[in-house]
Design a protein around this nucleic acid. Sequence first.
DNA 1: TACCGGGCTGGAGTGGCTCCAAGTCAAGTC
DNA 2: GACTTGACTTGGAGCCACTCCAGCCCGGTA
Lengths: 120, 120
Amino acid sequence: MRISEASTKSGLSADTIRYYEKSGLVPAVERGPDGLRRFSPENVEWLTLLYWLRKTGMPMQEMQRFAALYRQGDTTIPERREVLLNHEKRLHRRRADLDRCEEVLAYKIAAYEKIEGGLS
Amino acid sequence: MRISEASTKSGLSADTIRYYEKSGLVPAVERGPDGLRRFSPENVEWLTLLYWLRKTGMPMQEMQRFAALYRQGDTTIPERREVLLNHEKRLHRRRADLDRCEEVLAYKIAAYEKIEGGLS
DNA sequence: TACCGGGCTGGAGTGGCTCCAAGTCAAGTC
DNA sequence: GACTTGACTTGGAGCCACTCCAGCCCGGTA
């Protein structure tokens, strides 16, 4: 499939896909005789994974390391699993941030409501 | 208190505090006779709120609107409450993203473990 | 033939910091 | 009284991860 379909399927914009390819995050994207990119289902699965990793805060550098491992084939699977396990920890930290922020918001909103009561 | 203390208490770096002030996010920071910023406890509470809003994804623009309301005094409290309630919705969306990412990771990690079993 | 949609490249622009050079001032040390 | 140290100041450059755009090519339709 071509880039627009890969974009809707993966969630990444076409611009971002091209940018990722340039940055070495996407291995082996074929080109058709017309010079346009052709994405395999495996390519799209990979892009989708990148989409979620990025969206939940994995930095570029780490994704580049991950992509390098991916390019080296199945022998790097234990290391890749490590990367993902590490990212799971990051998700937990983020969730804790959201929880903390909810507390702060609840406190503030309650304070606002108390003042509003006295306003009218 | 001075900027370094405001920084440790709010969580924002001194650079970021100065940047926020320049961007109109922090109203009425006093200066001492030495020309250095003096932060009141109210300033610090405000900065802390900004810290959490920003850390959980509120864009600058919205924070600027929020700060403008803050500067206008207590009559804007209903609107400010709206902004915070809206941000709570954003938190929920982010949590959903984290959940979805966890699913993707669990699936990928399971797949890796299946391959690893066959590797050795 | 003219146009349109989809893709290409290279490069500029953006948001939100982050770091740095060069300077001021206050307090402490010799 | 001179020197050093350290916290702070400003203005401006640099950075990350995109995002947008100009200017181009190509295949298909009216």
